[in-house]
């Protein structure tokens, strides 16, 4: 029984093992042209070399930096506005359409506009990503505040708490779980936008540029390595925010 339980810890690795097995088999049996699909070994070797001594490590850090900057800017703008909008349902309803419209607009469609505004540089990439992330965060924060439990607000009110204190002590904390949902979605979106921007807006670095360059040079192991690095980054950022959430919003979902 105990041995069986111990084996259960290995469950998450089953998927990885199957993926690697199918991949190796495909390469071994030459089902796909080896030029298009390098072996797992050569891919991970390329990733290791790239991360430790090559340019991939630099690109990775550059993408991290842009994503963090844009998410931070988005959060600084969107959280206070979200609280403000959410604290009055009438105010939120009056701007809901505008928020939903731009939230539904693909941020990539905004590249040309931001290029005109900010030129070809980091500022454009960061600001487009921040724009996309901000709307997602704003929407979640506002809903978090609006959906604060009525009973909890009433409880604070019967204790004689002022509107401002209720906003600060109750609504703000009530909205935190939803705010973190917004932050996690926001950071994912920011990463997507940053990587796309790095591919197409005259970049010399970043994971997007790394993938694009490797493809142009037909260097498949490097390309797969950069894709995996981007995947690891996305997964890592999500995990980071989940960890922060569990630490600071311990009551979430309880």
């Amino acid at each position: 029984m105990i041995a069986l339980k111990r084996l259960q810890i290995l469950l998450p690795f089953v998927g990885i093992a199957v993926l690697l097995a199918v991949w190796s088999l495909t390469v071994w049996a030459r089902i796909v042209d080896p030029v298009l699909l390098p072996s797992p070994v050569s891919t991970f070797r390329a990733m290791w070399i790239g991360m430790t001594s090559g340019k991939l490590g630099v690109d990775f850090l550059k993408t991290v930096e842009r994503t963090i900057y844009s998410t931070a800017i988005a959060a600084i703008i969107a959280i206070p506005f979200g609280i403000l909008l959410g604290s009055s349902e009438k105010v939120y309803r009056s701007v809901e359409f505008v928020i939903d419209f731009f939230r539904s607009t693909p941020a990539s469609a905004m590249f040309p506009l931001f290029l005109v505004l900010f030129g070809v540089g980091d500022r454009t990439k960061i600001s487009v990503a921040a724009f996309g992330a901000a709307l997602v965060i704003l929407f979640n924060v506002a809903y978090g505040v609006m959906n604060a439990r009525k009973t909890r607000i009433l409880a604070a009110r019967v204790m004689g708490a002022s509107r401002l204190r209720i906003l600060w002590d109750v609504m703000l904390l009530e909205s935190l779980p939803q705010t973190f949902v917004g932050l996690r979605n926001g950071v994912s979106l920011a990463l997507v936008i940053v990587v796309v921007a790095e591919m197409f807006i005259g970049s010399t670095d970043g994971l997007g540029q790394s993938v694009f360059e490797a493809q142009q040079l037909f260097n498949m192991p490097d390309m797969y390595a950069a894709i995996f690095a981007a995947g690891a980054l996305g997964y890592g950022l999500n995990l980071l925010f989940l960890t922060i959430e569990r630490r600071f919003v311990h009551w979430s979902g309880k």
Partner: peptide
């Protein structure tokens, strides 16, 4: 729904005094 889940029971009881 009437308790504040972000506060320990002790601080929940003390909250009206804080107000």
């Amino acid at each position: 729904e009437a308790m504040f889940p972000w506060l320990r029971a002790f601080d929940n009881i003390a909250y009206p005094l804080k107000v």
